[in-house]
Design a protein around this nucleic acid. Structure first.
Lengths: 119, 119
DNA sequence: CAGTATCCCGTCAGATACTG
DNA sequence: CAGTATCTGACGGGATACTG
């Protein structure tokens, strides 16, 4: 990594840091998915946010949108090669979270307790 | 990684997804830093956001805050072991960004052009 | 030096309703 | 089915001023 920057990491976060981006990306990385399928698989997402996030991911070249001109319409979103690569890189982060989320939860609890005692 | 979740990755992002978290973390991972040093090294950050982000990172156990009771006061922030581990994992993301940011920029440009032509 | 305290605004995201 | 449009509130974050 550079010296004191963190800028390139920020570039990833600008792409993937949104509330829903990763959920969608993870789903699409298992294979092409339809709009309504995503609506079901990405728990809690609204139609609006699904559309917006899909557009951004498409814009950044992480998803490819394919419209099958049938009736009713059928639209599929597929992960691009670079999205699949990104998915691989996310594993390192996931592992970190899995290794330490207990520790982090404890740290939080301790911090909050010490602040409740002497504010 | 799990099946269709992405939840554990979100856990990382909740910690590190803020605008300034990574800049601070990267600085602190080179060795303990003082408040005013961070203010200079993390370009563009305000006092307010520096304080807030430091508190969150401390709360999550990613930084340890040490007050030296001298006058004038001297406060140092040191990365904890799990922060150093996280820093390692971020390298994978940085590499991804470095490999593809050209591609992404082009994808954006192409997308925006196609939208300007036929809106 | 190392912070707090306010005010303020823009963006993100939820709810709801409408459409090709 | 796969969206778009609009309104709204919450919150992240900037600018500024004050303090132990």
């Amino acid at each position: 990594m550079g010296q004191g920057d963190g800028c390139t990491v920020r570039e990833v976060l600008d792409r993937v840091g949104g509330k829903w981006s990763i959920g969608i990306l993870v789903a699409a990385c298992q294979g092409p998915v339809r709009f309504s399928e995503l609506e079901r698989r990405v728990e809690g997402i609204s139609r609006r946010m699904l559309t917006l996030t899909l557009r951004n991911l498409e814009r950044d070249g992480l998803l490819r949108r394919t419209v099958h001109p049938t009736v009713p319409p059928r639209v599929e979103y597929a992960a691009t090669p670079i999205a699949l690569e990104l998915y691989e890189s996310l594993v390192a982060l996931t592992d970190w979270a899995e290794r330490h989320h207990r520790t982090i939860a404890d740290a939080r609890a301790a911090y909050d307790r010490s602040r409740k005692a002497a504010p």
